[in-house]
């Protein structure tokens, strides 16, 4: 797992990278939760531009981030989704729970 994050004007952006599966999802879930807890942002953006593959483990990453943001009355957005992760989100109906901005395709 490798990710970068930055905070600007109460907006936390977390850029995920590589392949998201069960092997690395646990680390993503806890790292994102602690970033949100520390910064209490108004909005959190999960940037998937560098994500080359994702299975249902990625759905749990998003749902847990959504829970953390809901708890502090904030909003979650997804951005930069490539075709394969987008298809997984659509199949699972996550695209109806979380707003997806400017998907790549």
């Amino acid at each position: 797992m490798r990710f970068t994050s930055f905070l600007q004007d109460k907006q936390l952006t977390v850029a995920l990278t590589g392949e998201i599966d069960h092997h690395c999802a646990k680390d993503y879930i806890s790292s994102i939760a602690s970033k949100i807890e520390v910064y209490t942002p108004q909005t959190c953006i999960l940037d998937f531009q560098e994500v080359t593959f994702m299975d249902s483990s990625g759905i749990a990453v998003v749902i847990n981030a959504l829970r953390s943001m809901t708890r502090i009355n904030g909003q979650l957005f997804l951005t930069g989704l490539n075709k394969q992760p987008m298809k997984v989100f659509r199949a699972s109906g996550i695209d109806k729970l979380v707003e997806i901005k400017e998907a790549v395709s």
């Binding site: 299975d55 249902s56 759905i59 199949a91 699972s92």
Partner: peptide
């Protein structure tokens, strides 16, 4: 909390 219960649904639809 680490799972979403969508694995079989994804296999079936893909």
């Amino acid at each position: 909390f680490e799972r979403s219960g969508m694995g079989f649904t994804i296999m079936e639809s893909f």
